[in-house]
């Protein structure tokens, strides 16, 4: 898809990820009848790199979210591909439980190459 591709056509990246991706934005906590839902935007800056979270925006549906994301986050060639995801479709870990949740790697230095020092000075190792 060219950077200015037809926003009416489904974005191939979106269909690759999830075929039943919601086409309309989820109902926000309604302020007005016509409030648009919140979408999170992920941009791949160039081929070979991952999509990275760029920000968020409001849009009524996926096609408009993609179009808005292009205008808002790629005005200077910042991306070659965009994903948009309804914000409330993302599950996030709870910051309050981060200690316990991320505990398992603690004290397991042996998972890192730097733990093994006896091979120092040995070439190509």
């Amino acid at each position: 898809m060219s950077p200015h591709g037809n926003p009416e056509a489904p974005a191939s990246s979106a269909t690759e990820i999830k075929r039943e991706a919601p086409k309309a934005s989820p109902k926000p906590q309604e302020h007005t009848e016509h409030a648009w839902g919140l979408w999170e935007v992920f941009v791949r800056s160039s081929r070979g790199l991952s999509h990275v979270h760029a920000g968020s925006l409001h849009a009524p549906d996926a096609a408009m979210a993609l179009r808005n994301a292009r205008d808002l986050y790629t005005r200077r060639n910042e991306g070659v591909s965009i994903w948009v995801v309804p914000a409330d479709a993302i599950a996030a870990s709870d910051p309050d439980s981060k200690g316990a949740f991320f505990e398992s790697p603690q004290g397991k230095d042996y998972r890192h190459a730097t733990y093994y020092t006896k091979s120092e000075g040995v070439k190509h190792l």
Partner: peptide
Amino acid sequence: MAAQNLQSVPVELTAGTSETAE
């Protein structure tokens, strides 16, 4: 910008009052 105020999923049960949480 905003890694938005996403819904987080409780991964464990934490016992505690709101005062200690604060």
